[in-house]
Design a protein around this nucleic acid. Structure first.
Lengths: 225, 225
DNA sequence: TCTCCTTGTCGTCACTATGACGATAAGACC
DNA sequence: GGTCTTATCGTCATAGTGACGACAAGGAGA
């Protein structure tokens, strides 16, 4: 079949929680168009590559996370005819949730990759329609924290309840009551399971460590405050 | 720029509720591949067309609904390299929710379009990966009924509470208590607004007519029983 | 060691929303 | 007028939540 000339790409919204803030991995573009502007990491889909394969490959390239365990989900596809000045490029956006990385952007082939607070991304500062993509992805993440146990994707394998609460507070941007949060999380079946040991890394009284449970949805959902 | 050969299409999952059943508009394919099989309506994106524009155009072609008021949303994009035997075709799936049409498939250019109960679509009976697309779209619709007032998209402009309940029951496949449903719907602010008149079209005691309210999300959500 | 500070964890209480279900209302049909 | 059907209101027990008090258990410093 004959096809119109068209490029197919994926863009990644890689989110993490660092220092109590929701941060996104952005790249300073070295070439036109939008040279010098911040942009989402991304690239073209190779001829025999599935969309998610492309996304995982790029995730590994940018973060060094060979990423079977990393949560990655498709958000939406952006195809406005004029969204890329170089020609018709349709982009499938993916959302990745990663824990606070021990070696930030290790193995990145883009030396200009940085973690930026999502709240510090000014309107119009991103290349292409990446502002919109970022906003959609963050909104997706916020919504999913309500009814899925996905917040654990931001945490290390073992975490405390207050670390988990920190994720919710960072993503939602609202403080939560520690006591009610503790009750909610521990009473929701299979959300988290106690490991049996404790840690004092958060200061104060030693806290129990948990790992994620087997639940895939939360009934009833978490509430934003 | 040079691009790999690639086709970009949209496929539509057009859902309605008829006779208390959730139904999907399917087309009997007249040409290979998958000749004679049921498939979702769809087509290629034109060079200067936005993705949603393509979807709305096809919706109008299939249903005759010139569709500003019709709910249409993107579901996901499917791009497995081998999903179309003719070559690499990436498809953006859209979900459309339409009311029970007075003139079913009027104006369709595909004489072979039919409404099929979603429960009657057998595994493996659809062309391409359309079974998967349908399943994802139906799941999206089910989820959205919980936290959005979207069920009204299946209803005529003025509807009764029990007609709205019929939508929930058809989409979720579970019976709901009429009294609790009535309480829930009428007490959720801005979900529906009374029109002031009544109808007896459902039989029994005359029922108040409502139209959709201004709410965009439901707090707390509807529950599936 | 004692005290204070910090965070974790348990408990209480009032209120809201829900599921189950009884009871009545208001038309159509005979 | 009966009877059937659906609409609509009400009651009650219970689960879940938000607000917040109280105590536990470690570290830091006097």
């Amino acid at each position: 079949m004959d096809f119109e000339p068209l490029g197919l790409a994926t863009d990644l919204v890689i989110l993490t929680v660092r220092d109590g803030r929701l941060q996104v991995l952005l790249i300073r573009r070295g070439i036109a168009p939008y040279q010098g502007r911040w942009a989402l990491p991304g690239g073209f889909v190779r001829p025999d590559e599935d969309l998610e394969t492309t996304a995982r490959r790029e995730l590994a390239e940018e973060t060094g996370l060979s990423s079977d365990r990393i949560h990655l989900e498709q958000v939406a596809t952006y195809g406005a005819p004029d969204r890329d000045p170089r020609g018709r490029v349709v982009s499938v956006a993916y959302l990745a949730l990663v824990p606070d990385l021990p070696a930030p952007t290790a193995g990145s082939d883009a030396a200009s990759a940085h973690w930026i607070n999502t709240t510090d991304v000014d309107a119009g500062s991103l290349a292409f329609d990446h502002q919109r993509i970022l906003a959609d992805a963050v909104e997706r993440a916020r919504a999913k924290l309500e009814y899925s146990p996905l917040a654990t994707a931001f945490c290390p394998p073992e975490f405390t309840i207050s670390e988990l609460r920190g994720v919710y507070e960072a993503v939602w941007g609202t403080p939560l009551d520690p006591r009610n949060f503790h009750r909610k999380v521990t009473k929701t079946t299979n959300f988290v399971e106690p490991v049996g040991s404790t840690t004092t890394r958060d200061g104060g009284r030693p806290a129990q460590l948990f790992h994620r449970g087997t639940a895939t949805t939360l009934h009833p959902p978490m509430t934003r405050g």
